[in-house]
Amino acid sequence: MKRLLFAGTTIAVLTAAAASWAAMDPIATRQAVMKNNGAAMGALAGMAKGEAPFDANAANLAVRVLFNGAVGFTDLFPDGTQTGMDTEASPKIWEDMAGFKAKGVALEEAAAGVIATPITDLDGVKAALGAIGKTCGGCHETYRVKKDG
């Protein structure tokens, strides 16, 4: 019961967040989603590095945040949002939208894989961090350009 409530709350929070993002500018939304992804990866990495105690609920919630961050993310790059707000989106996104979208799917699938068999111990955190983390760099390598040095 407790578990169901937890999952229900999570989904409610995420849905509300998604709804409010949708009303925002696509670039602002992209940036907010990436901040959330960073926070979620940080929660997992903190446990993996032994800086935070293992917490299965927090770890699985972090993975769900990452899944939610991936769903629809690559739709937030319509024509006309190539520049502005210090976006670090690379022009290569618009040159190869299909390749870019595939990278989004890679994150979605990596996170979905962990959701299907939830994390129950620290090794699970490390495995999730590796599997999901690989997809972050995998996309940033081609489709993100650092501007602030």
């Binding site: 960073g38 940080g42 983390g133 940033h140 390598e141 650092k146």
Partner: peptide
């Protein structure tokens, strides 16, 4: 050292561009 091992910056952004390789 952690960034060179995992690709993650202190705020858990992931290194991109040529640095990913």
């Amino acid at each position: 050292a952690y960034a060179l091992e995992t690709g993650f910056t202190p705020d858990y952004d992931s290194l991109g561009s040529s640095m990913a390789a």
